[in-house]
Design a protein around this nucleic acid. Structure first.
Length: 424
RNA sequence: GCGGCGUUAGCUCAGCUGGUAGAGCUCUCGGUUGUGGUCCGAGCGGUCGUGGGUUCGAGUCCCACACGUCGCCCCA
């Protein structure tokens, strides 16, 4: 190291540092999610963020792979990509053990994803995502369970039905309508792209653009509205059946929205997105759907699958605007001060006693004065303070001080943990 | 990849049409040696994002770049 240029203390563009306060908050959110998913029988899996680049090249559009992934060549000339999403990894893992697994799988994973793109509200270059999938069940009941999990996760944070909307659609319905109109495969893709952008365009522009896709006076969305063909009607009834079943479970915020498309890739049936009803957060909070063809990319018969993903950035935005952030603190509850350095050994003995009783306790290890130790404890957000030295060792009591209220009382050592628990 | 706005002390910001920098908070020390927060006093702390240009003189005007932020494209 020379003394040329001081290193920048800023994190890399578009990524975040998680100081203990931030990381604790994020982990508290993940714990809420884990608890819900486990209670429904979901198991957590994980994998390396490093993947072979071909995994994405085989299924994703060229632009995304070339411009929106972190890809490099390793020392063995292998092309490596930092995972931009979890679903291909999941499909790979399932395919590798396809004969051994017990279906339907209920799996979830929580981890970081990387996308090389311009950061903006709700989108960063590294973000955390929860992926929830049910694999090996083609029935609509699997789709229902997937949507229920998305719903139950938000409910577990304390969200009300009025706080979010679940918009559901069916790729089969869209495809049937495009077919009924007589659109070619390319036109269908272009039309779905147009529909996907509908909410971002002004109504006039959209009306002008959809005209290109009208045959006999109707474009696919109008065919859906009119229930024109048997195939369209059958898919519509299928989707409405699912939505009605969800409403019957109390999910009155599920709606049919024919403009939900979810990109152009691998979705084969249900597609759904969850939105904050507060217009401050316009980006989808959760997105998912059925993707029956993905596992077959690794050979063998197709394995049906349905799932969704939820990003931490939009989730935290949602929880913040609705005041639902978990407030769990991991800070110590008791700061044990030492009148002099010679008391540290004694204080550690006392600390062991209260830790055994389940109290998070830290012992001073500095040569600061007691008043400075109290200040330090207060600044750390620690609620209780007790000095421990030769006098306490002899009497078997401590003066337990509540730093929030200022209340202080002498207590036998054996009672300290209970007093902290009761919040006195 | 494109565009708007921004970048001045650790933090939040002020600094009029160019004349070599301020506030509040934080932090450190003190107000007498086993008890914080309030109060009082003192102090530390800035090559004004980086690099060029215009000018006698640039925090201030111009250009480029970096980063942040919001949007566009895209969104697995």
């Amino acid at each position: 190291m020379s003394d040329k240029e001081p290193l920048s203390a800023e994190p890399y563009k578009g990524v975040r540092d998680f100081y203990p306060e931030d990381w604790t908050r994020l982990q508290a959110c993940f714990e809420v999610i884990r608890k819900v998913l486990r209670s429904y029988g979901f198991e957590e899996y994980n994998a390396s963020p490093l993947e072979r680049a071909e995994l994405y090249e085989s299924k994703t559009s060229e632009e995304i792979v070339n411009e929106q992934t972190y890809t490099f060549t390793d020392r063995g000339d292998r092309r490596v990509t930092l995972r931009p999403e979890m679903t291909p990894t999941l499909a790979r893992m399932v395919a590798a053990k396809r004969r051994e697994l017990v279906y339907p799988l209920r799996w979830f994973s929580i981890g970081n994803r990387f996308r090389y793109e311009r950061p903006q509200k709700g989108r960063l270059r590294e973000f955390y995502q929860v992926d929830v999938d049910i694999i090996g069940a083609a029935d609509a009941k699997a789709e229902g369970e997937a949507v229920v999990m998305a719903y139950e996760i938000l409910k577990a944070f304390g969200a009300q039905n009025a706080d979010f909307t679940i918009k559901a659609n069916s790729r089969k319905l869209l495809n049937a309508a495009c077919e009924a109109v007589g659109l070619s495969a390319d036109e269908t893709t272009a039309y779905l792209g147009l529909v996907d952008r509908r909410n971002k365009m002004d109504a006039e522009k959209f009306e002008a653009a959809r005209g290109e896709y009208r045959r006999n006076g109707k474009d696919p969305l109008e065919v859906i509205e009119a229930h024109d063909t048997d195939a369209v009607e059958a898919e519509y009834q299928q989707l409405m059946g699912l939505i009605e079943a969800l409403k019957a479970r109390g999910m009155d915020n599920v709606v049919f929205d024919p403009s939900v498309v979810r990109g152009f890739l691998y979705y084969t049936g249900l597609v759904f997105e969850v939105f904050d009803t507060n217009p401050e957060n316009p980006r989808a909070l959760i997105g998912g759907g059925r993707y029956d063809g993905l596992v077959a990319l690794f050979g063998g018969d197709p394995i049906p699958a349905v799932g969704f993903a939820m990003g931490d950035v939009t989730l935290i935005d949602f929880l913040t605007t609705h005041n639902l952030l978990p407030s769990e603190s991991s800070a110590p509850e008791l700061y044990i001060g030492t009148p002099s350095e010679e008391d540290i050994g004694l204080a550690q003995g006392f600390a062991e006693i209260v830790r055994t009783a389940g109290v998070r306790a830290m012992v001073n290890i500095t040569d600061r004065s007691l008043s400075d130790q109290i200040r330090e404890a207060a600044k750390r957000g620690i609620r209780y303070f007790a000095a421990y030295g030769a006098g306490e060792e002899e009497s078997g009591t401590v003066r337990l001080k509540n730093l929030e209220s200022g209340f202080e009382e002498e207590r036998p050592i054996a009672d300290v943990a209970a007093a902290i628990r009761s919040g006195s």
